[in-house]
Design a protein around this nucleic acid. Structure first.
Length: 476
DNA sequence: ATGTGC
């Protein structure tokens, strides 16, 4: 990326002052190497977002940012309804409420060594993964609406998991304001038999090992110790979220054209907060959040069933579940004034600091667990939200390593089979229905997750707590 | 991300 024009406010904070039609500056959190390696399109897209009506404070990009449809992935933008703020489907992305949840197991690495291969094979056999994967559950139209209104809470009521899980999920497992009536029949049809499935792309289910603790006090608060085995699930709202994103992007673009709204980029189609289309989108998007929460809850139940058969002494309570593709109404203090903002996070993890009222009592003293999945075969990290982070980007942090090249480029450089063999030599068991999918997700196709995490930690977006490395990865 | 797409 061209760095000309940026003011370097600190080592890790790059500031592009508001010029021309920009209403606010762009702020990117990154080190110089990450900045240089970012495509110019990230800058262009973040600048375009800064031009949208009612944007507050800045158009932010996290250290894992890369360009995407309209808004960059790793982008955070908040809008104030009292200043003509907007909602944009592109600011959330296609995989609505894609996120990560992490489960404890109560086990140490050696407890699973004897059954590791069997565990990998059983997880792969029983957890539906890949493009178009379907599960054992088929929802009729009434059940679909209940699921879309109830999220993980609906899943627990229907026998998937435990009530204790709910307080460890954003929104208590149930996003309020979801309106199943705003979800198209086509979106519901696509989702009918996709509950409890992983999907494809960067989604995965990993059995991981805690290899490093950076903050003993917070790690203790999270119930994490060295050499613990944990399970991370990364997936979203599958076909339903994708369909909603597609439909509303199209509809918002058409509406903008007919209303003569000048967009800096057609892909930034948006609508004023409070307008009928924005309200319908929010209702549908919140239903998709519930779909993703229910999906991860059902997957959790499947994992627990498998563990109870293979390692009966294992107990799998939920550490936390957090999304990184959402638009949420949140209260933030700007220049001493409390304002209700519509915060878009696209490939950015919510990272609320200590004392935040939305956190459950057990996590309020430490700050919210910020679950960050790395690329396949590298490392994942658990961070904690900080008070400082609440001021830096509305309580947000990065969401992963971030792609360094396109999927197409990756398939020209690597073969999936080679990647699987290389990782097997490091005792990382990959199971996937798609060799091509594995090639697209080759570790080399991503930025260095550790460099991204160092920036997030040192910039103060979130605070490093633990590092996890994969033992088994079920890849979509 | 996705009932993937040149």
């Amino acid at each position: 990326m061209e760095l000309n024009g940026f003011e370097r406010l600190s080592e890790l904070e790059w500031h592009l002052p508001a010029t021309d039609a920009m209403r606010v500056p762009v702020i990117i959190y990154a080190d110089e190497a990450l900045m240089r390696d970012m495509n110019d399109k990230v800058r262009e897209q973040a600048v375009n977002v800064a031009k949208l009506p009612g944007i507050v404070q800045a158009s932010y990009a996290m250290p894992d940012a890369h360009w995407d449809y309209g808004f960059p992935i790793g982008g955070v933008a908040a809008f104030d309804p009292e200043e003509g703020g907007v909602i944009s489907a592109g600011g959330v992305g296609f995989d609505i409420s894609c996120g990560v949840r992490c489960l404890h197991t109560g086990l140490k690495t050696q407890d699973i060594s004897r059954v590791k291969e069997q565990l990998a094979d059983t997880l792969f056999q029983r957890i539906p993964a890949g493009v178009g994967s379907t599960g054992a559950i088929c929802l009729d139209s009434r059940e679909m609406d209940e699921m879309l209104a109830g999220g993980a809470s609906w899943a627990v009521q229907n026998g998937f998991g435990e009530t204790a899980d709910l307080e460890r999920i954003e929104e208590g497992g149930k996003m309020t304001g979801a309106d199943p009536a705003q979800v198209s029949q086509q979106a519901k049809k696509r989702q009918r038999d996709e509950m409890g499935t992983l999907g494809s792309g960067n989604h995965y289910l990993e059995v991981q090992r805690v290899v490093e603790i950076y903050d003993q006090r917070i790690a203790m608060g999270y119930g994490l110790t060295q050499d613990d085995v944990v399970i991370s699930i990364h997936c979203g709202s599958r076909g339903l979220g994708h369909q909603i994103g597609t439909e509303f992007l199209r509809e918002m673009a058409i509406a903008a054209a007919s209303l003569n709204i000048l967009l800096p980029d057609r892909e930034l189609a948006c609508a004023p907060i409070g307008s009928p289309i924005a309200r319908r989108y929010l209702g549908a998007m919140r239903a998709a959040i519930n779909c993703a929460l229910a999906n991860r809850q059902i997957l959790t139940h499947l994992v627990r069933q498998i563990f109870s058969q293979l390692i009966p002494q294992a107990r799998l309570p939920l550490l936390y579940d957090v999304s990184h593709n959402t638009c949420k109404v949140e209260q933030h203090e700007i220049n001493g004034r409390k304002r209700k903002l519509h915060v878009h996070r696209k490939g950015a993890t919510r990272a609320f600091g200590p004392g935040h009222p939305d956190l459950p009592p057990a996590l309020r003293a430490t700050g919210q667990p910020v679950l960050i999945g790395g690329s396949m075969g590298t490392a994942s990290y658990i961070l904690a939200g900080t008070e400082r982070g609440m001021q830096l980007a509305f309580g947000s942090a990065c969401h992963g390593a971030g792609r360094a090249m396109s999927r197409h480029q990756a398939t020209r450089l690597w073969h999936g089979r080679d990647i699987i063999n290389q990782l097997a030599r490091r005792d990382i068991l990959i199971r996937s229905p798609s060799c091509r999918g594995v090639a697209e997700e080759a570790p080399g196709a991503y930025k260095d997750v550790s460099a991204v995490i160092e920036v997030a930690d040192r910039a103060g977006l979130a605070h490093k707590v633990a590092k996890l490395v994969p033992l088994i990865c079920i890849k979509g």
